[in-house]
Simulated assay, not measured.
Amino acid sequence: MSTISTHVLDAVQGKPASGIEVRLEKQTETGWLVLSESATDSDGRCPDLCQDGSDGVYRLTFAVDDYFASHSRISIYPEISITLIVEGGHYHIPLLLSDNSYTTYRGS
């Protein structure tokens, strides 16, 4: 079984991005199945999106539009989706966010 977690860091402000809605989906034969929905906490984290996932293709979607609007900022990204292959183990997927770019990687 696999676990999936994430956190979002606002690279412009140099601090965690709280209040961003995050959706986790798994690809099935008939399309995407929503597994969980959450929002980043005061430390920018969603630690328990998935505690017992099976192998497969997953997608994290971050609804960043409201976050930018709440900080009087404009971005070209209303949402950011990250698709990943899960094959056992822990998957921590950070998102480093700025108004017009983002970076992600597999963390620990």
Rank of each mutant, 00 (worst) to 15 (best):
I20A: 11
D66W: 00
G31F: 02
H92E: 08
Y58L: 06
S18D: 11
L24K: 11
G53F: 07
V86P: 04
R106F: 14
D52Y: 14
F68P: 02
E37C: 03
D48T: 14
I74E: 13
Y77G: 06
T83C: 01
S18K: 13
T61L: 04
T83P: 02
S70D: 12
K26S: 09
Y77K: 00
K26H: 03
Q27S: 09
A63D: 13
Y105W: 10
R23C: 03
G19W: 04
E37P: 03
V12S: 09
D10I: 01
S101C: 05
S38V: 05
E29H: 10
V12F: 01
L24C: 08
G56S: 10
A69R: 15
K26P: 09
L84D: 08
G19E: 09
H92S: 12
Y77N: 07
E25T: 15
I20M: 08
V8C: 12
S42Q: 10
T83G: 00
V86A: 13
D99R: 08
M1P: 10
S18Y: 06
D43A: 13
I80W: 03
C50G: 01
C50E: 15
G89Q: 06
A69Y: 13
P47K: 13
T103V: 11
R45H: 03
H71A: 09
P78E: 09
T6G: 11
L96C: 00
D99W: 01
G89M: 05
V34F: 01
S18W: 08
L95I: 15
R73P: 01
A69T: 06
A39P: 07
L24A: 07
Q51C: 09
T6A: 14
Q51V: 08
L60F: 06
R106L: 15
G19C: 04
S101E: 07
K26R: 14
D41S: 04
T30W: 12
P94V: 15
G56I: 13
E21D: 13
S36W: 05
D66K: 06
D55W: 12
D10T: 02
D52F: 14
S18H: 07
F68K: 04
P94C: 11
L84P: 00
E87S: 08
G107Y: 14
R106A: 09
S70N: 13
K15L: 11
K26N: 04
G89I: 02
R106E: 13
L97A: 06
L96G: 13
A63C: 00
H90F: 00
E79P: 00
V64Q: 02
E21H: 10
V57Q: 08
P16W: 05
T103R: 06
C46R: 04
S36Q: 14
F68V: 07
S108W: 08
S38D: 12
